[in-house]
Amino acid sequence: MPQYGFHYDAARCTGCKTCEAACRDYHDLPIDITYRHVYEMEGGSFSKDANGCWVTDSFTYYVSFACQHCDHPACTKVCPTGAMHKDDQGFVSVNTERCIGCGYCAMSCPYNAPTVDRSLGHSVKCDGCKDRVAQGQNPICVDACTQRAITFGLVEDLAPSDSRADVAPLPDPALTGPNLYIVSCDAYRPHGDSSVHVANKPEVK
């Protein structure tokens, strides 16, 4: 089975959120729903030196991601109706004809990718822009990235030497086998590192 995935160069990302904005626009998302998230992570602190000057070991980094179209999706496992399914291209998406809106997928996904859209009565999430991909285009978020930090393609073509996403606040990649490959950057901390916190909660929660 072919498997598409994202490749994300964290060293290039500036946290601009254009990827998210493009997705929101293209998929005409209501304001409270986003398929792509850009987390701003922060660690460290400030302290005063003997002369009253400021020194800091603080740092900031961004992580941009959507659904990882995982090898072992947590969402499809729990879905009672099979609405959440992985198709023959490896895309995980919602069959809206089947979804009962129970929200199990949203609860179980450790990437917080699906959301139940109450007005539509079903779950919604990143579908990898599979219609665009079928036409030979990139997902809109990929084409939008101002820094060309995200690329997309068959995983065998995505620099396989780069490791699967292992960065806080994302989970251990061993859990679901995310098809998100990351070029790490200086500031990154691995999954589970409790010294970092989310600095833009209202923007992602």
């Binding site: 601009c16 254009t18 904005a21 626009d25 293209y26 005409d28 084409d143 939008a144 101002t146």
Partner: peptide, 22 residues
């Protein structure tokens, strides 16, 4: 919906693309 410019070389640092921001 809107798209921006992705024409020409999209390599990092070669060519230029006035890609719109958020």
């Amino acid at each position: 919906y809107v798209e921006s410019d992705t024409s020409g070389d999209s390599g990092f640092g070669e060519g230029f693309q006035p890609r719109a921001c958020l």
